[in-house]
Design a binder for these strands. Sequence first.
DNA 1: TTCTGACATATTTAGCGTAAAATGTCAGGA
DNA 2: TCCTGACATTTTACGCTAAATATGTCAGAA
Lengths: 205, 205
Amino acid sequence: MHSNDPIEHPPETAQLDDPKATAILHAAFATFSLYGYRRSAMADIAKAAGISRAALYLHFKNKEDILRGMMQRYYQGAEIDFAAALGAPGVVMSQLQNGFAALSGETFRQLLNAPHGHELLDVKAEAGPVVAEGEAALARVLAQYLRDAEAAGRISLDLIGADADAAAGVMMQAYKGLKQDGPSYEVFCEKRDQLARIYAAALMR
Amino acid sequence: MHSNDPIEHPPETAQLDDPKATAILHAAFATFSLYGYRRSAMADIAKAAGISRAALYLHFKNKEDILRGMMQRYYQGAEIDFAAALGAPGVVMSQLQNGFAALSGETFRQLLNAPHGHELLDVKAEAGPVVAEGEAALARVLAQYLRDAEAAGRISLDLIGADADAAAGVMMQAYKGLKQDGPSYEVFCEKRDQLARIYAAALMR
DNA sequence: TTCTGACATATTTAGCGTAAAATGTCAGGA
DNA sequence: TCCTGACATTTTACGCTAAATATGTCAGAA
């Protein structure tokens, strides 16, 4: 490759182990939380990342690509943490509570406490299918947990008259409802734990 | 009162038994569902109601007042229907399912099927505190149901580790989450019934 | 190789005047 | 008494321009 060749953008969004991309995504998260996605300029992100604006384009195609990468990164991590929490030893209630807690950890706290963090909860349009795919992946994780727990005789889906997929879908969407009305992080956490208790009680005999 | 006195607007939003006001609110609902609240003009509502535009102002202060009246009317009816369904004879699961179904009956079906009906789900800003108060009233109804059912030994709130008010609040908000992502009415109903089954299973021993 | 300053392009913003539409009110008709 | 047509006012929608800002890309420095 010669230096006077045109820029060759990364074919996909940045890899999980690229430290530069990670730094940019962190800076972007901070910037978006502060100003909102629309009002954030590439220059703001570059400044927050401590690099020049031009360097951003060496790692991401454009602003939308940064947002996509950010969301994808979040969902990748959330999926792993979610599955880990659900799979950890313990009773069903704590597994569910820790599972949902894993979906709203420190990152989420920063988001809700930031000036325009709430706006980032509604970027489905700009972020494209990444969000829907991420949510679907989380629902699959939960569905798999339900199947495993039922196979182990720890819960019974008959109690709620549903198969694992339908149940997981409803549970995830109802959980998302708790994010509405711009609650404080603390209030949200209480409601989240409460909902997890309801889920646990519904599934256990 | 002399005819040349200035218009005397109704002090509060129209009464539940005023047939004229009811007709206007029905026309407004149809119009808002069709065009959305913002794009609907008073002339559209008047035409749908079969009266002159000026006559609207004999019953409502302005467009915002019509919206308020519409939402208030909905919540008044919903509260009554919700309480009736929860209080009807039957097992807990059917009471909860019929209760939540009462909150999304024919009116709600029309809404979701209308071109811009979804917009009406997000009019908190324009409708003011009416929506929040209506939601709170519904939560109180559910909380009272939970208390009564527990007193009768039909459910146990200990199972979900919550008092009636907290549980009702979370249950209502999680229910609202199901309205997200613009589902069809049929899909929404399935999820709603599924969530009611989860709630019932959680509360019964 | 990695990154930056600077450039050309594209987009956004704000202002401003006009036309069109919507609003709220009233005198007066049915 | 209830309602309407018409009026004055306010709000919105355009079209246009210039200025400002943001974007994406390079040649070349570090």
